[in-house]
Design a protein around this nucleic acid. Structure first.
Lengths: 247, 247
DNA sequence: GTGCCCGTTGTATAATGCACAACGATTGAC
DNA sequence: GTCAATCGTTGTGCATTATACAACGGGCAC
């Protein structure tokens, strides 16, 4: 049980550095963690000596270090699901013409772990590493509906007027999602952006992620929706089939 | 001076987890750091409780956690150079037809922090977060030649028969790079891949990064080299100009 | 079933991180 | 230009805390 306190503080400092827009000063950091300046200074120095933090030579303020970017990449390249899904994401993009994404459940949201951008000039781009809410994105809904580990969100924040904010409505919506086998985000997270997503299962039948497309509502029209859903479902099923032979 | 020991150990554990291909066990980790199993267990538990590590429920082995990917993204989005460079990277890709990259000096190499992929089916893709050697890549050479903070590599590892492995040759080569204002990697890092890069300077005249293109040697032919170099130099200069008004 | 190896947990001791304080450096106001 | 205030860093004694040792419980192979 017992956490290592100073390691925990160091990690909290990393999160604070991440939140700070233009870096953070030692005094400021110490205040937020309610620890002494000297402790904060030494902790951040340690982070810096391993490349996890960096000091601006001019302002003496600290920010996140480059080592994190490196680690992130090695983590992503070590993710088997990502390798398996890549060609299917490409196909999904080519057949629909829209940006394709792969997400997993993480940190109470949908974590985007890979993408294939659409060549169209007008494109909805959600970068790898983003955590999107579960209740108003297609990938999120797909995870929420099919992944047993997903916690039903306690707060349904409204991002647009179309966002579903009532738990009952969302539950009904998720039932429908399960029945039809794919999830839709109809401008519920961002104005003018529609998304479609389907879950992906591993050899044990457990949902391990979701793939989907995302694009301007003008191109992903309501008339094309069922056609695009069919394509997405097919490719999702193919990926699931591929993952069935992995144990 | 004095490092916080347990934080340092936690960070070392992160690096070990990054190196481990298929996750790592506690005993194994403890052995590599020469600490007790119990310490390693508690440290990794702390990492896990903040999402920096993750335990496979089946094998009980640990691997890197998803929080790192999130942090990496926030760090990249907070990097001003990246925002400034993005449109220039796009232009570079459009005018040359090759994949364009932005790199900074970090961890003794060239850290790729952004890219715009070529639409061509045959493309050389080096993902964001990769650290490439300085002596045999165009971006690396550009940084090595123009960034005063760059340390001359102690070991010049040969990746292909064309890799420059002699320090004297490399110094002469870097002099030439400085004179002509752009760097070339002629299949010195990867077979069949040629790259071109130019440094980018901030308002103080200090090199803060490099941008360049990378593609199959068939398309980046030696005849087109000077033409492509001119384009890259021009766009690099434009980005440098843009950064001059930032203080 | 039995022995082995793994990850986790309890505990006393000693090492380590912490609070307080002082120091140099930088910034801003007058 | 001078002074004061603030910031980040560094020393140091004390007390908290991380650690090593040991024991435990579970999974796996034989």
């Amino acid at each position: 049980m017992s956490e290592i306190k100073s390691l925990a503080r160091g990690l909290k400092l990393l999160e604070l550095l991440a939140q700070a827009e233009n870096g953070a000063g030692i005094t400021e950091l110490a205040g937020q963690l309610d620890i002494d300046k000297s402790s904060a200074s030494r902790l951040v120095q340690t982070l810096a000596s391993y490349g996890f933090a960096e000091q601006d030579p001019d302002t003496r303020r600290y920010k996140l270090g480059p080592r994190i970017v490196t680690l992130s990449r090695t983590m992503l390249t070590r993710m088997p699901l990502r390798d398996e899904a890549k060609p299917f994401l490409r196909r999904l993009m080519e057949r629909t013409g829209e940006g394709a994404h792969l997400a997993i459940l993480s940190q109470g949201g949908a974590l985007y772990v890979d993408q294939v951008e659409s060549p169209a000039t007008l494109r909805a781009t959600t970068g790898v590493g983003t955590v999107a809410p579960l209740h108003c994105t297609a990938l999120g809904k797909a995870l929420l509906a099919f992944d047993a580990h997903a916690h039903f969100p306690t707060e349904l924040k409204a991002y647009t007027p179309r966002t579903i904010t009532s738990p009952e409505t969302l539950r009904v919506h998720l039932d429908q999602t399960r029945r039809q086998g794919y999830a839709v985000d109809d401008e519920e997270y961002e104005y003018g952006v529609r998304c479609l997503a389907v879950p992906v299962f591993d050899y044990r039948g457990k949902a391990v992620g979701a793939i989907g497309i995302s694009g301007p509502a003008g191109r992903i029209s309501l008339e094309r929706l069922s056609e695009l859903a069919a394509i997405t479902r097919t490719i999702g099923q193919e990926l699931t089939d591929r993952l069935s032979f992995k144990p």
